[in-house]
């Protein structure tokens, strides 16, 4: 069904160990700095200081209102297309072995990808003018 791909001949979990080290280092750095600045800076809090800044006028209502649906749509489209992109990766790594047959299959896939893409374009999902 599937041939042994590069995915299987993975490096050992140990090769990820340095990444853990780096994660620790980054965490330590960020944490320390945050901690340090918390104590270093002066603290003279007044209620006016803690008001959110809206170009100098008084804040009106809660900022957390629904934003334009376009942004949401973009996010959803990203999720969908990104996953399709993910499919290209294993293909790209193996595509020499798969040869022309694989290429044709990929063409079909791209055709569907483009089909979806043109559909959303036509539907106006990415029209930001209005």
């Amino acid at each position: 069904m599937f041939t042994d791909t590069v995915l299987l001949s993975a490096t050992t979990p140990f090769s990820y160990f340095p990444i853990v080290l780096q994660l620790c280092a980054a965490l330590g750095f960020v944490g320390l700095t945050m901690f340090a600045t918390h104590f270093l800076g002066p603290k003279r809090k007044t209620s006016d200081k803690l008001v959110t800044f809206e170009s100098g006028i008084e804040q009106k209502g809660n900022a957390r209102q629904p934003v334009a649906i376009k942004y949401f749509l973009t996010a959803i489209l990203f999720v969908l297309f990104d996953v399709e992109v993910i499919f290209f990766y294993p293909y790209a790594v193996n595509f020499r072995e798969l040869g022309w047959d694989g290429f044709l299959a990929m063409l079909l896939f791209v055709a569907f990808f483009l089909g979806g893409f043109f559909y959303i374009l036509k539907k106006g999902a990415l029209k930001w003018e209005d």
Partner: peptide, 27 residues
């Protein structure tokens, strides 16, 4: 087993479907 990579391909499909579900579900 030589075809054990199949499960990893399966994971790809799960991700795809999960993405589709996210799209629909969040909407």
């Amino acid at each position: 087993r030589v075809d054990a990579a199949g499960a990893q391909i399966f994971v790809f499909f799960i991700m795809v479907v999960a993405a589709a579900e996210v799209a629909v579900g969040l909407a």
